[in-house]
Design a protein around this nucleic acid. Structure first.
Lengths: 343, 343
DNA sequence: CTGTTAGCGCCTTCAT
DNA sequence: ATGAAGGCGCTAACAG
């Protein structure tokens, strides 16, 4: 592989001139520039990003640590990050945490050791004390994506989970639902906690009692499925709400286990949802995150943070949309009309 | 950030000793080693991967260039690559080609400039002359994943598309189907070409005529959907076969457009398919790639190639499985029994 | 407008 | 068993 020395020799200039034409970092006589570019052409020279990074002590790369959930919402976020990074000329280094705090730690370390200029933690288990500590001393800024923890000294990007959950429930109660099965999942996860809180807000708004709802929490999807199936023996539960894609899957399985089906004899709505809602049955009412935009927003915040490390941390929440479909709309057609303001 | 110099000073040794305890690359007195590890502990020293890579001229990282299809099969492959890389202590650098030859070129360049030790091109448009040329001179080996081109000087990992397609058609014809709508897509893509060829093999095996089948090719999914819908006016077409996930989506939409439904009045099967086949209707008979294993196989091949650059290129094809579901099994129950040997 | 030079942090002969 | 020193390829003062 050709180096700057080779180019300089052929062009009959110093390596510093080569560097400067390469980076456009100072004026050089058209004629000399010519000789240099010709030499570059001839040798097929390419800058060595490693050496450059070492000297400049910045790599023009950022890291993304993700839990490897195959959920569409997450894939979209990663995609948004990828897109925005490329647009900024940043290389993206990816590491996988598999929803495991330990692996997350190691992933973060790996990326930091590679001297990424900044780090985005998507769906992080960031609450673990260790992580925050280990990040404190680093100069590489960190952005939290999707799971937002209060009182952390990081920029954060998420969605307005609580508010949208409340709007969703307003719609459901307006349609006549009084008692619901809420498959809330692991409420230590901020996103899921916020969604549950918003649902409860909505319940209260409608003058309903929390005690009349069935709320299922926990981390074990198998157990949740079983519990949900038993709960559904109670035919007064007219609607099921899933807190995320895997929770929705467990819920749908439970509905089938209980010998019920949506929307025929129970309504159903979920957060995050599935791809191809137009091709498969049932068509599910879904709260959709602006996942791609969340990814790009994270990159934007990261870049701003790299440029001004000492401004105070910001939290951005993007607005979600409610996509109404058969699973709620074709249950109880006799209910009150749907307000048009909902999406 | 602490460097080896800091550590050496504190431990009262030379930096070369520090290097050697770090890498276990020569014996050092237990006592000195102790002092060094203590100093490392105290300073929170971490190796600078960049400087190390520069000196050793290897980065312990590999690159993965992918088309950003959100298809499950692809996500699985990427996941497999990620997993295997981590297991080998390799960092994974990811770049996205968005199914665009130009972007693919640039992605490859970016990764090569970062001096990855090797490169995996998944779902590559590698046929473009430029790419192959630009790769020829590089010392970083390249593995092609999923789309296999004959006569290319690279290791390649794919699936036994042709053979499995043939088995699938054997099953369908045994079940009584005589005329099919084959949504084959862009047959310049080797994977899709192989699948179509295998389907035609199967047609011939069954003593049927190719002229009685409707074969739709092309890159425009919208157009394919329209053509498929018109074709389905012919009620003698009793089965539709999709060549990939997006082709399946277009096919399913076309079936709906034509006022038909599967499996009620047309059978359906596809390659690659969708997630959550247990939760949604219709449940689709699917040829499934061992996508995860393909990813890990690519990493294995890459590592072997890095270690012995001059052995001749190998092509690995992994066996696919046929997952039989309602979309073919609940059409024409009166047909001949299904051979048990199929999956 | 161009050239010289000192490192960035590390690994690795070559001495001792 | 340990140290000294050169250099990987590049950028950024500093000179001229």
């Amino acid at each position: 592989m050709a180096t700057m020395v080779d180019v300089a020799k052929i062009a009959n200039v110093s390596i510093s001139t080569v560097s400067h034409v390469l980076n456009g970092t100072r004026n050089v006589e058209p004629d000399t520039r010519r000789r240099v570019t010709d030499a570059i052409e001839k040798t097929g020279y390419r800058q060595d990003a490693l050496a450059r990074a070492m000297r400049r002590s910045r790599t023009d790369s950022i890291g993304l640590v993700v839990s490897d959930a195959g959920e569409p919402a997450f894939a979209e976020m990663a995609h948004g990050v990828e897109h925005a990074a490329a647009e900024q000329g940043l290389t993206l280094l990816l590491a996988n945490s598999a929803e495991d705090a330990d692996r997350e730690q190691r992933a973060v370390r790996t990326l930091l050791d590679r001297r990424v200029d900044g780090l985005i933690l998507a769906r992080s288990a960031a609450s673990t004390a260790g992580l925050v500590d280990s990040l404190a001393g680093e100069k590489a800024p960190v952005i939290l994506l999707d799971r937002l923890y209060a009182d952390l000294p990081f920029d954060q990007v998420g969605a307005d989970n609580r508010d949208t959950a409340r709007r969703l429930v307003a719609h459901l109660t307006a349609a006549g639902h009084r008692r619901s099965l809420i498959v809330a999942g692991d409420t230590r996860v901020p996103t899921l906690r916020e969604r549950l809180d918003g649902i409860l807000d909505g319940i209260r708004d409608a003058g309903l009692r929390e005690e009349d709802q069935v709320i299922l929490t926990g981390t074990d999807f198998g157990a949740l499925r079983t519990e949900a199936a038993s709960a559904l023996a109670d035919r007064d539960l007219t609607v099921v709400i899933g807190g995320s894609t895997p929770l929705a899957t467990a819920s749908l399985q439970a509905i089938a286990d209980a010998g019920r089906s949506t929307p025929r004899d129970v309504a159903f709505a979920t957060f995050d949802g599935y791809n191809h809602p137009d091709v498969f049955e049932p068509r599910i009412t879904t709260v959709r995150q602006p996942a791609f935009d969340m990814g790009t927003a994270a990159v934007r915040l990261l870049i701003e943070r790299i440029e001004s490390p000492d401004s105070s941390p910001r939290t951005v929440r993007l607005r979600q949309t409610i996509e109404l479909r058969d699973s709620t709309e074709h249950y109880r057609r006799d209910a009150e009309p749907v307000p048009a303001s909902l999406t």
